[in-house]
Design a protein around this nucleic acid. Structure first.
Lengths: 206, 206
DNA sequence: CATATTGGGGAGCGTTACTATCCGACGTCA
DNA sequence: TGACGTCGGATAGTAACGCTCCCCAATATG
């Protein structure tokens, strides 16, 4: 398969594919001659994955590069990979206000109270702090009780996540990383739809 | 409060505040003289909200402008506002591959089967299609069964969402919009933490 | 052999979210 | 009253991102 054909079967322009090659997001094809390279199904898959992570996942291409590296790299220990992968997804935000002043460490305390087993330096504690503080800044009442009620349901989601992880090492890594990134938008869309369903059925009852 | 003080109490640079004023994201202060304008608490809140929506919600400033307009505008009917607000959040993506070929309308069929009451032209059906197709592109097995299991839990989240909406019109609109946008990151962070907790407790059991 | 196409590479472009600079009016304190 | 610093407003510049355009020489193709 030549570059133009790869372009045809992925719907991505040749120019963009060249760009991805330059950026190392797409592995080079087998060089046949100086003006011919051969691409196969694995390249098609890779391109589709890059587009999915970019368009739906909203990740910058640089981050996608890191993610692909982790997926491609030889196997590590199961839970370490999950953490490494998740770390690569944390936005490198400086301390710009949220959580810096009022709510610092609230997440840590809440997680402890709930009895979740989380490493003390987990970057997602900061993420939770930031997001929680932002919700406060939005002026909607977001207390621990509400967070607990969310957490009850999110635990169920996490159990689904974990239960669907395959046994095999490489597939597991892929599942964890891709699943973490790409399933978020699915859940967000589901939440919007469910909100409408719930509020509509309540309105019908009333 | 002068612009410099507004800057001090929000942590946002004067230059950026001027930019927000130009873009209409921040309402002008009361003009005291040609070189003096007066800002109050409402301006501080507004700036914090803009930053929250931008940094944590990840919304482009143009969209934030629309959202603020909806919040500020006089009251509409309760469920219409929810839909209008949600519509303003759908990324204006063209049909770039995902969902265009294989999975088109899968979401619609699934929603019907589940018995959710959703308008046929709801934009989030497309979102779900896209996100679902992207997960497929990621090569993780994402079938209807798994989606159903997620949906069971997401329904619970939506019930929390709906139950926390206040009675009063204006507060309700604010809650729905801000809550929809800013709670997503909270749930995402919770999901990451819950994944670790769940996989860790399973490992401990084994 | 003539022509078209290919892959590679550099430079340019449009958008987004600021940031820096300039300016003239104004408050302020001596 | 006057020197001086600061204010708000406007214009232009910048950095990152994600492409997209164009050129080139080599090669595939008829």
């Amino acid at each position: 398969m030549r570059l133009a054909e790869l372009s045809a079967s992925t719907g991505v322009s040749v120019a963009t594919l060249k760009y991805y090659l330059r950026e190392g997001l797409l592995q080079p094809g087998a060089v046949v001659s100086k003006t011919q390279a051969d691409y196969d199904e694995s390249h098609v898959e890779r391109v589709r994955l890059v587009r999915a992570l970019s368009e739906v996942g909203g990740l910058p291409l640089a981050t996608i590069g890191q993610v692909l590296e982790i997926i491609t790299a030889p196997g590590h220990d199961w839970i370490d990979v999950l953490r490494a992968a998740q770390r690569s997804l944390v936005k490198p935000l400086g301390d710009n206000g949220f959580g810096a002043t009022d709510g610092r460490g609230r997440a840590r305390a809440w997680v402890d109270k709930r009895g979740w087993l989380i490493e003390p330096d987990d970057p997602f504690l900061d993420e939770l702090d930031r997001a929680w503080a932002a919700s406060d800044a939005g002026g909607i009442g977001f207390d621990e009780d509400r967070l607990d009620r969310y957490a009850d349901h999110v635990e169920g989601i996490a159990r689904v996540d974990v239960s669907t992880v395959p046994e095999e090492q490489e597939a597991a890594i892929r599942q964890v990383i891709i699943g973490t990134i790409l399933v978020d938008p699915v859940l967000a869309a589901l939440r919007r739809l469910a909100q409408q369903h719930v509020s509509r059925s309540q309105a019908d009852q009333a």
